[in-house]
C-alpha cells in the first residue's frame, strides 16, 4: 500500500509544460543603481566539433538576452580545432588557448568556462548549463571597474591599448589582468550535427564569432595589484602591430581582471576596434 502511494505520488509529481515553451525575456539588470559584475563565457570549440554550432547558438541567444553584461570568447583548441582534411585546413588554435584548455580541462567539446569559477576544482560548464550559470551571476555586484581605450592607425596597423580602472572595495590577494584580441565574423567551414543550428553535416560558410586570436600580455597576464585598498587605481598600456591576418573592422579588445589565487574573473570589458 505504501509503495502504491509512493508510486502515485511520484507520478503526480510531474510538471507537464504547456505551450508557449519559451519564457518572456526579462533582460539584464542594467537599470539597477549598483554597478554589476560582467560575465565572461569562454566557449571552447573547434571546427570539427559537430555539437559546437548549437553551443555557439546558445551563447549567442544568451548575449541577446544580456547584451550589456555577457561577453563571449570562442577559444578554438584541442583535437577538434586541429587542421584536418579538406575543407578543415584552417588552424585557429592559439598557444594561449591550448594552455587554458589544458589547465581548465576543456578537452571534451563543446564545453565552457564561466568567469573561471570553480566548483570543487571543476571549471567546466556544459552548454546546457550556460543559461542557468550565467543567470545566476547576473546580480553579483562589481568590485572592480575599468575601461579600455584604443587608438588604431589603419595605415600601419599600429594599435595602442590602455586599460584604466579602479578597485571599488578593498580586496585581499593578488589581481592580474589579461588582454585579448578577438576577431568576429570569420567565415570558415564547421562540422555540424544539429539542423536547427545550420545545415548538416558541414556548414561551409559558417560564421565563427568572438574568436580568440591572441593575448597581448601572455597566457596568465600580469599583476596589477596586491592587497588593493578601496578606490585604488590601476592603469596599463600596450602597443603592438595588429597581425595582418586579422580583419581590423571585425576585431575587438577584451580584457579581464582575475583573482590570482583562484583564477576567478572579477570584471571583464570588451571594446570593438572600429
Amino acid at each position: 500500500m505504501i509503495f502504491v502511494l509512493a508510486g502515485s505520488c511520484l507520478l503526480l509529481a510531474c510538471d507537464k509544460i504547456e505551450p508557449p515553451y519559451m519564457k518572456t525575456p526579462q533582460g539584464g539588470n542594467g537599470d539597477t543603481e549598483v554597478l554589476l559584475k560582467k560575465i565572461l563565457l569562454e566557449d571552447y570549440t573547434g571546427h570539427t566539433c559537430v555539437n559546437c554550432p548549437a553551443a555557439a547558438k546558445t551563447a549567442s541567444d544568451l548575449q541577446q538576452l544580456y547584451p550589456d553584461q555577457l561577453v563571449i570568447m570562442a577559444v578554438h583548441s584541442g583535437h577538434f580545432a586541429k587542421p584536418q582534411g579538406d575543407p578543415f585546413l584552417a588552424d585557429y588554435r592559439t598557444e594561449v588557448g591550448e594552455a587554458w584548455e589544458g589547465f581548465f580541462g576543456t578537452a571534451i567539446k563543446p564545453n565552457g568556462v564561466i568567469n573561471r569559477r570553480s566548483n570543487n576544482g571543476n571549471y567546466v560548464v556544459s552548454p546546457g548549463n550556460w543559461p542557468a550559470e550565467v543567470t545566476a551571476l547576473l546580480n553579483d555586484p562589481a568590485e572592480i571597474q575599468f575601461e579600455i581605450t584604443l587608438e588604431y592607425n589603419t595605415a600601419n596597423r599600429k594599435l595602442d591599448i590602455a586599460v584604466k580602472g579602479e578597485f571599488l572595495t578593498a580586496l585581499t590577494g593578488e589581481y592580474k589582468l589579461i588582454v585579448c584580441i578577438l576577431e568576429d565574423s570569420i567565415v570558415s567551414p564547421q562540422k555540424n550535427s544539429d539542423a536547427s543550428a545550420g545545415v548538416t553535416p558541414i556548414i561551409h560558410d559558417y560564421v565563427h564569432r568572438h574568436m580568440l586570436r591572441q593575448t597581448v600580455n601572455g597566457i596568465w597576464g600580469e599583476s596589477i595589484a596586491v592587497q588593493p585598498i578601496a578606490n585604488s587605481m590601476f592603469e596599463t598600456q600596450y602597443s603592438l602591430t595588429l597581425n595582418s591576418q586579422y580583419k581590423a573592422q571585425h576585431c575587438s579588445i577584451m580584457a579581464f581582471v582575475y583573482d590570482a589565487a583562484n583564477w576567478e574573473i572579477m570584471q571583464v570589458e570588451e571594446v570593438v576596434m572600429e
Binding site: G7, L10, L11, A13, C14, D15, K16, I17, P20, Y21, M22, K23, P25, Q26, D61, L62, L65, P131, A132, V134, T135, A136
Partner: peptide
C-alpha cells in the same frame, strides 16, 4: 513488475520553461 521514477531539478533557465519534476513509468 511496475516502476515509477521522478527527477527533481530546479528551473533556472532564462530561455525555456522547464519542468522541475519529470516523471517516468
Amino acid at each position: 513488475g511496475a516502476s515509477a521514477v521522478s527527477r527533481y531539478q530546479r528551473d533556472a533557465d532564462p530561455i525555456y520553461k522547464l519542468p522541475e519534476n519529470v516523471g517516468s513509468m
